[in-house]
Write a protein that binds this DNA or RNA. Structure first.
Lengths: 137, 137
DNA sequence: GTTAATGCAAATCTTTTGCATGCGG
DNA sequence: CCGCATGCAAAAGATTTGCATTAAC
């Protein structure tokens, strides 16, 4: 725990951001999340342990952390945005249309093909995100 | 022109929707669009030729047409939704982060791999959409 | 001490909805 | 005619912002 808190502080400093209690708590809550929480979700989870945070700060912090590349924003269809700690390996998301469950899927093969295709068009990928809506067979 | 209008009417009827002037105009404007317009964009383009439409109707029509499978809704990051006529071949979108330009990209290879991967997880794809943010090299 | 970050509340932006009216079948 | 579709205006939901205050460095 202690070590992790320090890590968050270092990551924030490295990104040129001040180390505030709110930012550290938000990062830790996002790190321990097994789902992909929305800003409201995070706000509720943080309030449970420390109610000295406002929703506005959650949004501002999420923006700052995204800009710094520490977290990733996921835009699902007609839903509030969801967030995750920036993944080490690029992956996509499969949403179960019946249950709403989100599953992370990755394929080196697909990533490689996509990268080739984009390069052939004269571009370099800044980021990508594939959203697959699917149903259990 | 005449033939196309008829086509729109038929498509609407087949979807069990009433054929109204607003729906036909919206479909034709979306069909002739080379970009991926937002609801506001479409509203403006329709108003230019027929100002007897409201923004609410644009939204309602877009929802109805999407539900009927005639059009596809694209959710880009932190932007209003964009729409396109349902493509015959599945494709993804590359957004030029500098210019905002949207390019359609498709790869049978990627589609096949993705499909296999999802099947292996015990799911069948309902829809999918990959968004690649990229920059010219 | 400076400056950036925060909390609060109000504002903004996109999208949806209630209701009376009008048009399509 | 009947019922769905429309226009208008108001509401809703997510996110952003102005401003005074507080905390980080």
């Amino acid at each position: 725990m202690r070590a992790q808190t320090t890590d968050f502080a270092q990551a924030l400093r490295k990104a040129g951001l001040r180390v505030t209690q709110q930012r550290v708590v938000l990062l830790s809550k996002l790190m321990e999340a097994v789902d992909h929480p929305t800003a409201e979700d995070l706000f509720a989870r943080i309030c449970a342990v420390d109610d000295s945070i406002s929703l506005a700060t959650v949004y501002r912090t999420l923006s700052a952390l995204e800009e710094a590349g520490l977290i990733r924003k996921l835009s699902f269809e007609s839903e509030p945005a969801r967030f995750e700690i920036t993944p080490t390996a690029e992956h996509d998301h499969l949403v179960d249309v019946d249950t709403g469950e989100v599953i992370e899927i990755a394929s080196e093969e697909i990533n490689r093909l996509r990268s080739e295709l984009v390069t052939r068009l004269g571009y370099e990928i800044v980021s990508h995100h594939a959203l697959i809506r699917a149903r259990k067979i």
